[in-house]
Write a protein that binds this DNA or RNA. Structure first.
Lengths: 197, 197
DNA sequence: GTCTATATGGGGATAGAC
DNA sequence: GTCTATCCCCATATAGAC
């Protein structure tokens, strides 16, 4: 099945995801999206009820169900929890960097669309918070402020090195996904002063 | 001197900085800016030559000259260098969070305006890279990939916890600037497996 | 379901009066 | 230098033909 054969609605969503990730929601026009999808401009309104509703449809369609969402954080010890988060976030980044990009844009730009994104994303950070707290109480981790530490980790994980803007700072070859997970895990557990193993 | 008395050009730049930080460059209209500044719409074109040039004027006017820019990184040992970066970035965040916000937006949205921002910001990260490399060679720091580690640190420092979006994750009282510098420094040096002192 | 043609609104810029 | 009025462009959405 080529792209041209796929359901027209999906083709539109796919084109929208690509273009939103590249240029942002506002700067991407419905015309561009439909040109990219090989569809007529009017179809966005017809099938989704406008540009904004198309955005939500895109999100519902593409956002993955990760394991963490339904996980009871008490089932995992804090170190394993932190490891899991690093792995999942990095997997997500690799499996759909466009969607990550869009989320990041929406969060940073503080759009009125983030409300709908929140419910997909927040549960994970809530669990990270739990594991940090638990890990400190068990003497595994050391830090002062839980809030500050939580945001240091979120920053480390979410920050995007993909934009051309940062290319000038790269000197090494691009790491594999596994190497990145490893480096992130080491850095974060080090930052938590975990001295296990 | 009240805001109303200030030079009209400065009042416009100040209003623009505020509104760009809140709503982004694209979603902020020249009309809004001029209303906020108590100025006439036509003045933006007259004084700056259009909305985009006003943006650059804003940037040239407000971007601080930090000490790091002219510093020779060899004059500082790597640990002191890292400490300095954490301090400077956090100071900047506190002294002008609007400008930080704007920079972040421009970087994430990959606008064509970032070119002009680059020259202000990049020298700092180049020096951080130098200190990391030097620190590893001196046996002070431990990590695998220099690139990955550099971006972990940049992510930790730049990531913004100010937006309302994250409020739900905060449980403690807001830390003082000094406490945040301390926590960030501990986390980052820990992540680098620095065991000094 | 899909198309063309058009309505509608809003934004940046500027001509020309003061 | 500052104002008002207006121009022009471009984006979304939709009416109505097929």
């Amino acid at each position: 099945m080529t792209t041209g054969d796929a359901d027209i609605k999906i083709r539109i969503l796919s084109a929208a995801k690509k273009l939103f990730a590249e240029n942002g929601f506002d700067k991407t026009t419905v015309r561009q999206i439909c040109e990219e999808a090989g569809a007529n401009v009017a179809l966005v309104s017809y099938h989704f009820g406008g540009k904004e509703n198309m955005f939500y449809a895109l999100f519902d369609y593409y956002f993955p169900n990760n394991q963490i969402a339904e996980l009871d954080p008490m089932q995992l010890d804090p170190v394993e929890g932190v490891r899991l988060i690093v792995r999942e976030v990095t997997n997500f980044r690799y499996s759909d960097y466009q969607l990550i990009n869009i989320i990041q844009q929406e969060v940073i730009m503080n759009t009125d669309r983030i409300e709908k994104i929140r419910k997909h994303v927040m549960p994970m950070w809530g669990k990270l918070r739990y594991w940090l707290k638990e890990g400190r109480e068990q003497g595994l981790f050391q830090f002062n402020s839980l809030d500050n530490t939580l945001f240091s980790i979120i920053g480390t994980l979410l920050f995007h090195r993909n934009s051309q803007y940062w290319a000038i700072l790269h000197e090494e070859e691009r790491s594999s996904k596994e190497a990145i997970v490893e480096d992130l895990t080491l850095f974060i557990l080090g930052g938590l002063y975990y001295r296990g193993e």
